[in-house]
Write a protein that binds this DNA or RNA. Sequence first.
RNA 1: GGCGCGUUGGUGUAAUUGGUUAACACGCCGCCCUCUCAAGGCGGAGAGUACGGGUUCGAUCCCCGUACGCGCUACCA
Length: 476
Amino acid sequence: MNKKVRVRFAPSPTGYLHLGSFRTALFNYLFAHHHGGKFILRIEDTDQSRKVEGAVENLINILNEMGLSYDEGPDAGGEFGPYFQSQRLELYRKYCDELLAGGHAYYAFESAEELEEMRRVQQMQGKQTMYDRRARNLTDNEVKERLASGIPYVIRLKVPIDSEIRFTDLIRGNVKIDTNLVDDQVLLKGDGFPTYHLANVIDDHLMNISHIIRGEEWLTSVPKHIILYNAFGWEIPQMAHVPLILNPDKTKLSKRQGDVATEDYLKKGYLREALLNFMALLGWNPGEGEEKEIFSKEELINLFSIERVNSAGAVFNIDKLNWMNGEYIKKYDINELTELILPYLNSGGIDTSDLAKTKRVVFAIKNYLNRLDEAYEQAKVYYSSVSLSDAQNDIICNEISKQVFAALTSKVDALLEITIDNFKPLLSEVQKETGVKGKNLFMPVRLALTGEEHGPELGLIAYVLGKEEVLKRLKI
RNA sequence: GGCGCGUUGGUGUAAUUGGUUAACACGCCGCCCUCUCAAGGCGGAGAGUACGGGUUCGAUCCCCGUACGCGCUACCA
């Protein structure tokens, strides 16, 4: 890569960060860092009708939370700002005038209703719905008159006739499109704001963007952009269009079939490291016989290459995410994991003021978790008081059980404290002494300690409860 | 409808520039561990690479067609 790598993530602030957008941002981030380049955040807020309060703040928060820090952007500064397109309006106007002067664009004065009518007629005639370029033939005087009389206007791109645009996509290879199928796209809207096509070309050039990595939905509008780059005489950045993320039925990932907002997954208790790892592997892989799947962000940066991004859409497989998240939870630092799990325990009503106990609980439950929000279900057994049914009472009150409790009590009593693995051997000893084994041995102890017939292994339970509590509960 | 992109077990992917019994992971099933539920260990089923034609001594891999899916076809991004 001889040119300095500069990539951008350019979302429109819709209020949340779609998983697909997140992955696009991630690929940009990994690419930039792999090549020692810069990652830029640019807000594409050129649609005034779609403004959402607080959307940008939310977007920035999620990006930060996911660890995708950017080198330049709204709140990060940089010498190519402003990074809000809504603050770059004069720029777009200026370049539009240049296009007009060079004969690459033209004024058009149709109202929305006229255009609608035009499309209706085209549809009736079974023709392609496309702007019919009626304003292309307006004379200079006609344009002047209309401008002078204050008729609302837009500026449209003058797409070359009978030509073919070819380009090479880093992921898909060669693509070619006939310009006769390309619409005379509106560049500057009636409200003075640019459309995506104009703004993105101007900004990418002005911001020295070297590689455009964005969603597949933009692939077919590349010709419009190339026409613009050529009209300006600018160098065209390299392009890579990443595939879509799909629902299990292979339609585009949508709200109807589950959560699509990255923040929702965080709330549900997916670790950011796991989510990042999983999303990176959705449509990309390191290849070369690499069979590992758990990668840190640093490893991903090291291994990433845009050419190895798949060209086909990928189904979002929640089962595998669950598995991967579980892998991360199992290996997580116990102190940090406790911090993360605390809110989930609290919201379930568990008193976590005893931090030492909470840590023991977290240690005990982590192997049982795929998601953090399952923590309460798994943890509650360690906090509940024991209450038994009649049948269960019969079990712990019978003679055999009493023998077991007596033997066990004296052994626990002799212990300085219960550790993760010194309780289970005690049960084996009790078994030898009393001759009681299997279910007859374990179930009374389990019931006495937890009041439940199912639960984690007894060693863990005793460890969490601690010596005092265990002795107390064995006293029947 | 038109144009573009795509298609390897249920899912995510792998397979030196065409030569493999088509590999790995998730999921599923079974066994072991075991008082239970997970975890863990071991093993198994599951694709002849969407389909049909080519090119070739030989195609998952190259070419063409068909089908299907998705995307685009806005003064939305």
